[in-house]
Design a protein around this nucleic acid. Structure first.
Length: 264
DNA sequence: ATGCCTGCGGTTCGCAGA
């Protein structure tokens, strides 16, 4: 099965891109971020027509997250537990996977996460980013104790390492690359989560975001900030991972592209 | 050193993003 994360930067503006990509990549579960619309405005029927159950946690103008699934899903959380927040940045579901040849089915828990940007740092926005990450770590610890297949996927707004940026020195003072931000992300890994892409390759030059400005895309001035973090039970089934960077070259693209992992 | 670009809301500009 393929599970993917995609920050669409307005699902209404990106509906055609999303449909085209869903048909081409054929992911089983998709985590979306930055819907930038309320639940009633989500292009639900178009996605359902492709065979997906659609669950949204939307908000007017900003933020908004969703989970699309070809398997039946039950929503566990809308909003990050222990972190009261007016901003729609977290949705969590459990998907029921069919068993093979009459064997009992299994389940996978999935969260779609839109971590705060945090700029400018320092300041209240950076404090909010740190608080969100702290709450996420607390919740991740509780979820890992369940010893389930678990995927925490989304836009983490963290560049984990220098090799995850074309020009790391340009990001030294940015909230996405400050040592404290990277430490927050590293603490998630220390809990026992695996960065799916990094489990499959040590290569640099693998980016998931290119700014709209200053010719970032043609210069390949990108950063890797969209991640799928796997519990040990999910990591054991990891068969591959990748980034669909071609979408960035489309007309009117999102500034992010989809990242995916295949679990056996 | 600053803005570049894009989306949104709601009006022709400000805010947010990263």
């Amino acid at each position: 099965m393929i599970i993917a994360t995609f920050n669409v930067n307005s699902v209404r503006q990106r509906e055609a891109h999303l449909v085209r990509w869903l048909k081409a990549r054929a992911p089983d579960i998709v985590c979306l971020q930055e819907l930038k619309c309320e639940d009633h405005a989500f292009p639900r029927s178009e996605i359902e027509a492709l065979g997906y159950q659609v669950e949204t946690h939307g908000q007017k103008t900003f933020n908004g997250v969703a989970i699309l699934s070809r398997f039946p899903i039950t929503i566990e959380e809308r909003g990050l537990p222990g972190f009261p927040d007016e901003q729609a940045r977290y949705i969590e579901a459990v998907a029921s996977l069919p068993g093979e040849k009459g064997a009992p089915g299994t389940a996978i828990r999935v969260a779609s996460i839109y971590c705060p940007n945090g700029n400018p740092a320092p300041g209240p926005k950076y404090a909010y980013k740190r608080a969100f990450m702290a709450a996420l770590m607390g919740h991740a610890r509780a979820l890992l104790a369940l010893e389930e297949m678990l995927v925490l996927a989304g836009d983490y707004n963290v560049i984990p390492e220098p090799r995850d940026a074309r020009n790391p020195d340009l990001w030294r003072a940015d909230a996405l690359f400050l040592p404290e931000s990277r430490a927050d992300f590293r603490r998630l890994l220390t809990l026992g989560l695996t960065d799916a892409l990094r489990a499959t390759t040590d290569s640099g030059g693998l980016y998931s975001f290119w700014d709209y400005q200053a010719g970032a895309w043609p210069r390949d001035n990108g950063i890797r900030i969209d991640h799928l973090l796997l519990s040990p039970q999910a990591a054991d089934r990891l068969r591959g991972a990748g980034i669909d960077r071609d979408l960035r070259g489309a007309e009117k693209p999102s500034d992010h592209v989809p990242v995916w992992a295949e679990l056996g």
